[in-house]
Structures are given as C-alpha cells and as structure tokens.
C-alpha cells in the first residue's frame, strides 16, 4: 500500500509539474471548453424566460448554476481516452509502461488526478467570471459540498474505468474510432452533459438509472445544485462506488485477455 501511495504522489507531482509547464496552454484549453456549456446555458435560459422563468423545474438561475458546475465536472471527467490507448499501442509507448512493476491504469489514474488539482485551481477564476455574467442561484448545504467533493472524484474514477475498458478494444484492433464515437454519442445523451437528466423523456431517465453515465455527470452536479436529501446524496455516492467496483472487476478480467493479445506492434 505504501508503495502505491508513494507512486501516486510521485506521478501526481510529475503531472502537476507538466501542467505548470503549459499553464497558459491549459488555460486556453479550459476557456475553449466553456464554449459548449455557455451555448447550452444561453439556449436553456432563453427557453426558461420564454416559459415564464422556469423549464422542467429549473429557473434561469438554476440553469446557470447547473452549467457553471458542469464546467468543473466536465474537467474532472477528462481521463485517458480510448484514442490515447490506440496511440499508445501504435507508438510503442505501452511496451515501456508494461515493463514497469505497476499496472498502466495506476499511471493513468495518478497522472490525471494530478492534473485535476491544476484544473480546479484554473477553474476558480473562470467560475467567478461565469457567475458574474450569468447570476446563478445556489442554495448549498454542507452535506452537499461534502458529497459533491467526493462525487467529482467518483465520476473521475468511473469514467477512467469506462474509457479504459473501451481502450482495451485496441488490443484486438487499432482501428476502432467509430466505436468510440458511438460510445460518446450515448454518453452525451445519457449522462446529463447535454441537458439535465430531469428534462429528458422519462424512459431515457429510467434507462440512465441502469447505466453508469449519469453517475459521471448529472449526479455530481445535482449533488451540489439540486435538492437531494442526505439519503439520496449518499445512495448516489454508493452507486458511484458500485460502478467503480464493477469497472475494476471488468477491467481486471478483460485486461487478462487483452494482454495476451498484445502484439507490441509499435516498438
């Protein structure tokens, strides 16, 4: 355990140092990233105003709160992608990682976790500017803050497991971009990224309860800006833990098959 803590701290340190090296580029990247939620925000606040100030239970201020927190959750959701796995195998980088006495997934989790600390720091002034412009309404309890603080990391881990599982496909074939795009399409609709899940048709909401996507996006945002009870907050976090455990379980099984397929083509 001590070995892993040491490894995680060292990798996170390297990640933070790298992000600091490119802090300006990171900032522009984040600014570019807020374009998407700002578009959603403008559209939904316009609709809400036209409908007398509320749509699907969301006021103009509530929409603003949802999409401002969205920007942080989106950044927390950035993990090593299946495209990255494709590149890593093609370029032979995975061979070098496999020579280490530590699973490559640990490297990814630790590296991107380090990045998150930089992201959170960079996000704060952006959130302040967005709040100044869009005037969100927040009614936050301490329990919500606690669960949200845990849930954004839960979301990060679920998405890491999901995209790593998807990335495993590249052990069999390195031309799978179309499958990845299909996945991202489903995720967009079923996660709460496009619109809050409560605005979706009931059947989509029901379907999303049985899939991992909403626990990576809608739940963390809702934990902070929604009106969930303590039981709902903690049971939601419990669902995140369940999906993380499921992801680790599946990843272990598939990894054992995948690694036997590895042909180290890229180096």
């Amino acid at each position: 355990m001590r070995r892993y803590i040491d490894f995680y701290l060292a990798t996170m340190r390297i990640s933070i140092l790298e992000q600091i090296q490119y802090s300006v580029a990171n900032y522009f990247y984040m600014i570019g990233m807020i374009t998407e939620p700002v578009i959603y925000l403008v559209v939904w606040t316009t609709i809400a105003r036209q409908q007398g100030g509320t749509t699907g239970g969301y006021t103009v201020g509530a929409f603003a709160a949802y999409y401002i927190i969205w920007t942080l959750v989106r950044n927390m959701n950035i993990v090593f992608t299946p495209f990255g796995w494709e590149w890593r195998i093609r370029e032979g980088q995975l061979s070098m990682m496999l020579m280490r006495p530590i699973h490559p997934i640990h490297s990814d989790v630790a590296f991107f976790a380090g990045w998150k600390f930089v992201v959170i720091l960079l996000w704060l002034p952006l959130a302040a500017i967005l709040s100044w412009i869009f005037k969100p309404t927040f009614d936050i309890r301490w329990m919500e803050v606690i669960v949200f603080s845990l849930a954004i990391w839960g979301a990060y881990l679920i998405r890491t497991m999901l995209l790593s599982l998807l990335g495993m496909i590249t052990f069999w074939t390195t031309r799978v971009s179309a499958i990845f795009e299909l996945y991202f399409g489903f995720e967009l609709i079923l996660s709460g990224r496009l619109v809050p899940m409560t605005l979706m048709p009931v059947w989509i909401q029901n379907l999303s309860n049985y899939l991992p996507f909403k626990w990576t996006f809608f739940f963390p945002i809702e934990a902070l800006v929604g009106n969930l009870t303590d039981v709902q907050l903690w049971s939601g976090f419990g669902m995140q833990l369940l999906w993380i455990a499921t992801g680790i379980f599946l990843l272990n099984i598939i990894w054992n098959f995948a690694i036997k397929q590895y042909s180290a083509v890229g180096g």
Partner: peptide
Amino acid sequence: MGNRNQLSWDLPAIDSFELQRAIYS
C-alpha cells in the same frame, strides 16, 4: 529500446528519475 523513451518530454530528467524511484520502490 533505442528509439523509445519513457522519461517525461517536458521535464528535466531529474524529476523523471524521482518517478522511477517510486515505481521501483
């Protein structure tokens, strides 16, 4: 491998060596 690298491209080697220390305990 002569044509592969594992050290971080953007950082001084001294930082990457520290990571190697942690990897191999």
